[in-house]
Simulated scan of single mutants.
Amino acid sequence: MTLLPIGLGGTELVAWRLDQAVHAPTWDSGEGAYRVGGRWNSKGVRAVYCSLDPATAILEVAVHKGFRSLDTVAHIMTAAVIGDAGDVHVLDPGSVPNPNWLRPGIPGAGQQAFGDDLLQRHRFVAIPSAVSSHSWNLIFLAGSGTGPYALKFQEAFALDTRLHPPAA
């Protein structure tokens, strides 16, 4: 059953992440971000990228890999509960020095340094998604230990096949 967000009567703040099945056991390691950097972290920083709803988590992966990969390579959807919503710093889009950082595109060094600083100062950071500007991502540093978040479940992901139709 789909969990209701807190705003609709749910009781938990849930972070969602979609990974290839082979990487699912280490979903919160920040390994990919560590190796190559990300939109809000420099290379060498173990940032873990999640979304605040499962649909955005799917889109965040699809924008990089495409629906074909989500249809043909096994993926796992992870749900993790944030222990205290008060630990989440919500980034005010108006406080971002460069509004282009909130749009799709290749991140620059300034954007990554800004994100590194946010991650050093806050346990969790909620940032608008570049894929869907009305959706939110949640980012945190790997190694936060148990307590700030807990794994709720992991389940096999099944893409709606209409998103990867046969060639005409």
Rank of each mutant, 00 (worst) to 15 (best):
L13R: 04
A15D: 09
A126G: 02
V63R: 14
L151S: 15
T146G: 06
S29M: 00
S95T: 15
G38E: 10
E155C: 10
N41A: 01
V36S: 08
G83Q: 12
A57W: 01
G143H: 00
A130K: 09
A109R: 06
H23E: 11
K43W: 00
G143E: 12
L102S: 04
G94L: 08
L138H: 00
R68I: 06
N100Q: 15
L70R: 01
L138P: 01
A57T: 13
Q20M: 07
L102A: 06
F140I: 02
K152R: 04
G115M: 11
H75A: 00
R46D: 11
G108E: 14
L70H: 03
A79H: 04
A126R: 00
A62Y: 03
G94E: 03
G110P: 00
P128H: 14
S42Q: 10
V88Q: 02
A79F: 09
V63N: 14
A158R: 14
L141I: 09
N41Y: 09
K43V: 12
N98R: 06
S42W: 11
V36F: 05
A126N: 03
P148M: 06
G38A: 08
P104V: 01
P99E: 10
I76D: 05
H75V: 02
G38D: 15
D87K: 10
P54M: 15
L70A: 07
F124E: 01
P99I: 08
A62H: 11
I76H: 07
D87L: 13
L138M: 02
R39Y: 05
A150M: 09
R121M: 04
F124N: 01
G115Q: 03
Q20L: 02
K152T: 06
D53W: 08
W27Y: 14
N41C: 14
G66P: 04
D28K: 12
Q112N: 05
T72I: 15
G143I: 15
W136K: 12
L13N: 00
R39E: 06
A158V: 10
D19G: 06
V81I: 14
S29R: 01
G30H: 07
P148E: 04
A55V: 09
I127W: 00
R39V: 13
T78A: 03
S129N: 07
A24L: 10
S42N: 08
V45E: 10
W40Q: 13
V96E: 12
G105V: 05
S135I: 15
S51T: 12
A62F: 03
V61D: 01
A79N: 08
A47S: 07
P104G: 03
F157I: 02
V61S: 01
E60N: 03
T72D: 12
L119K: 07
A15P: 03
Q20A: 12
R35M: 15
I58F: 10
N100I: 13
P104W: 00
S144K: 06
P148S: 05
P97N: 07
W136D: 00
A80Y: 08
G147Y: 14
S133H: 15
V45M: 15
S42K: 09
W27G: 05
G44Q: 08
G86A: 09
L119G: 00
G86S: 03
A158S: 07
D116P: 12
Y149V: 04
S133T: 12
I106P: 14
V48R: 00
D117A: 14
K65I: 06
A113V: 12
N137K: 03
L118V: 11
G86E: 10
